[in-house]
């Protein structure tokens, strides 16, 4: 079985103990979040905080907007051969008051998505190399009572 390896170090948990989550930073001074995590400065111009805790961001959010990639993106994107188009979504996290981009899991098309739809975070393969699966966070639509 392939080993799961994060495609980037320290940006998310694999969810081996519970559900996976994005890892952001929270300024100890003013509470401002950042993703990816900031370790050296707070983005708030009125805060000179230098202490940050690493926090798991909300696992669910609502779609701010979405699109897809009909053509294979250029390197350093490592696409499967043959190339399979995928969707991307920018997702608003209510508690953190920020919007985070991510790919949408396979099998979903733009026709399945709407601004405002709820999605949840999952960890999924970005590309494989030998017996290693390089994984990344992706958004998966949450099927609601109204069908999504």
């Amino acid at each position: 079985m392939a080993t799961r390896v994060p495609a980037v170090e320290g940006w998310f948990t694999l969810g081996e103990e519970g559900a996976p989550a994005l890892l952001g930073s929270r300024c100890a001074g003013c509470g401002t979040y950042a993703f990816p995590a900031e370790a050296s400065f707070c983005r708030n111009p009125d805060c000179d905080g230098q202490e940050f805790e690493t926090v798991e961001l909300s696992r669910r959010g609502r779609i701010w907007s979405y699109t897809d990639a009909r053509y294979q993106p250029p390197p350093p994107y490592l696409a499967a051969d043959p190339y399979v188009p995928f969707c991307l979504a920018a997702v608003e996290l209510a508690a953190e008051k920020l919007v985070v981009m991510g790919q949408v899991v396979g099998g979903v098309t733009v026709d399945d998505l709407r601004v405002g739809d709820e999605v949840e975070l999952v960890i999924d393969t970005l590309y494989g190399e030998g017996d290693q699966d390089f994984v990344v966070w992706k958004w998966r639509p949450v099927a609601g009572p109204a069908g999504g």
Binding site: C27, C30, G31, T32, Y33, A34, F35, P36, R43, N44, D46, C47, E96, K97, L98, V99, V100, M101
Partner: peptide, 10 residues
């Protein structure tokens, strides 16, 4: 080319 917006929490 950002991954996220600023957080408006503060």
């Amino acid at each position: 080319p950002n991954f996220s917006t600023d957080s408006a929490v503060a």
